[in-house]
Write a protein that binds this DNA or RNA. Structure first.
Lengths: 338, 338
DNA sequence: CAATTTCTCGCAACCGTTTTCGTAAATAAA
DNA sequence: TTTATTTACGAAAACGGTTGCGAGAAATTG
């Protein structure tokens, strides 16, 4: 059916293909009269231009790729919202790719992005990603890349993050203030800057408070499936921490469940604070103290930068660095102390 | 930079463009020797074929569109995961579009889908959508459409849903069994089949139990922003319900918060059950009884059907109907009664 | 050795749109 | 009236692959 393209319009109006094309794009070369006829017929026949033909000719796809570790995470969902909101106003389309936290997937995805399919890439790298060649290759192909949240430090390009180090510090200080003497930090990666920075802040706060390094417990839960068991083990340990910082959202549920199963009470026995954008945080049992990241804003800012990089060839992304602060929202999971 | 295309390969190897193309596609017309040389050079020069050029010629984009009301919702996030998992194995790319529950947005999005940009569309309609022409137009253009979760009843095409009526029945019966005499159903739409079917099941259960229609309270929260206030009003009403069914996930937080603020205890004063895939359900205060929808599976099934419709022209989507049941998971928010 | 078949490859059209350039007619300036 | 300029449009070449067909060379057959 349909298959109505420029050629069909041209035949019906006894005009040339080029005239139709120009009329549709409102070129000054075409008379108002002709334009009107073309627009009318186009509307009547429900003509929709083929974006790929135009992309081929113009070397612009009006499409960007968003590469994420996963989508079932409030932070990333909200970030997508932010990205979409900007893309819409710019008339861009958004391809979503999931790395599932695997480097190999991420590399395959970025390889495809060199095809001309997209004009730019927004990426939050997988927890496995350490090398950078796959991203450098993209840049070598003149595809602008902007990191959001999870960056690759060695790459020279724009990035939008939150103040991870400060938040690590803030979280740890909050626990200390609430009376914790043996807080632990639960991380999901030994390479992700977001985790490392939060961890550094955590350690700095503890050191500052005079807590010896030996008591600065850092726990790495790199495997999703064993997370629950791992956390349980830690909570059963003789040196059980009296405070816990969840570096990412998905740690929260296993922690709460494990505490419940083991009869460990939050916040009496252990205080919990999490980097999370969970909207159920205030109705958890107990309500969870969070470091809430501005996910939507990070998405918006990253997209805005990317489009600048795409549209203004003069704009240099390489030195752009935007930090949007998170906020600590105190709830009962860290109640007690002074 | 780069710009390495088939022509470049052809020149370097002193072969014709068509030979390169055929070699890359492993055509029988090309000798193994030549193929090897082509593949090697392609790898060396980091050649990535332009998908749009090929799409133009082959009239296939290897891309599908997923149209959702919103993405910051666990159901949809998980559904995207399911869709992606199938798309990956099929080598398809996934464009995400958000209608933000607005019909006008949805129409614009589907219009664009007629351009040849996508080979098929997976859609969960907005809560505003009542008419169907925008979808019919798509089908008239030979773009297969598959509904998942939120369908448009008058359209003849495949749909993957959960057993909404039964779940409405199940939810209501659960409340009745737990001692509720005045349960209420909180809906977000008077037109969405998912809401209507759940509502019908709810009413059927109550009627069956001998509860007069006058006491079958149905509450419509169509506006996101006023939801909290609306719920609070209802809870302050003299005829405050003693049980509450949240027809969708996003109703949960405002209900819990409102109850807390008003000093209404769950489940003593009011029992709550929700259609939700929240993974924090077990750690809420109190843990939330849910009708948990198989979001991931629904996504997978819908995508599988769509690809059948795209790839096998003999396959008739119009009569396909798949129902994947949800499960009721009982927790404390409905404790009490017998 | 001639006739036929098989193996490889190139030519050229095509997909739908954009864009440069050329040109005839209409209008303005000289 | 002649010349210059503007206006409105068409022809054709791209963009990067794909594909049907034809043709020469090599291999097979009779």
């Amino acid at each position: 059916m349909s298959k109505v393209n420029i050629k069909v319009l041209a035949e019906q109006l006894q005009l040339s293909v080029s005239t139709i094309s120009k009329a549709l794009r409102d070129s000054y070369e075409i008379s108002d009269e002709t334009k009107k006829k073309v627009l009318e017929l186009a509307a009547q026949l429900n003509y929709v231009p083929n974006p790929y033909a135009s992309s081929l000719r113009k070397k612009k796809s009006k499409t960007i790729a968003v590469v994420l570790p996963e989508v079932a995470d409030n932070f990333f969902s909200l970030a997508i919202n932010g990205i979409q909101s900007i893309a819409e106003t710019k008339g861009y389309h958004v391809l979503i790719y999931l790395s599932h936290e695997k480097f190999a997937n991420e590399r395959t995805i970025l390889e495809d992005c060199q095809s001309g399919r997209v004009d730019g890439v927004l990426i939050s790298i997988s927890s496995e990603t350490k090398s950078a060649e796959h991203i450098i290759k993209l840049q070598a192909n003149n595809i602008p890349v902007v990191f959001f949240d999870r960056e690759q430090e060695s790459i020279e390009t724009a990035r939008v993050t939150t103040n991870d180090y400060d938040c690590g510090l803030m979280a740890a200080n909050h626990l200390l203030k609430k009376g914790c003497r043996k807080p632990a930090f639960v991380s999901i990666s030994q390479s992700l800057p977001i985790c490392l920075n939060r961890e550094e802040g955590f350690k700095a706060a503890l050191t500052e408070a005079g807590i010896p390094e030996a008591n600065q417990q850092i726990i790495y839960c790199t495997d999703n499936d064993s997370m629950y068991d791992q956390i349980k083990t830690i909570l059963q340990n003789k040196h059980r921490p009296d405070g816990l910082i969840a570096s990412v959202e998905k740690i929260v549920t296993p922690v709460y469940l494990a505490c419940h199963e083991l009869g460990i009470h939050i916040p009496e026995d252990i205080k919990v604070i999490a980097f999370a954008t969970l909207d159920t945080a205030p109705i958890l049992n107990p309500p969870l103290t969070t470091i809430t990241q501005p996910a939507f804003e990070i998405g918006k800012a990253a997209a805005t930068l990317l489009f600048k990089g795409i549209e203004k060839s003069t704009f240099d992304l390489s030195k752009e660095r935007m930090v949007i602060p998170s906020v600590l929202i105190e709830r009962e999971s860290t109640a007690g102390g002074s």
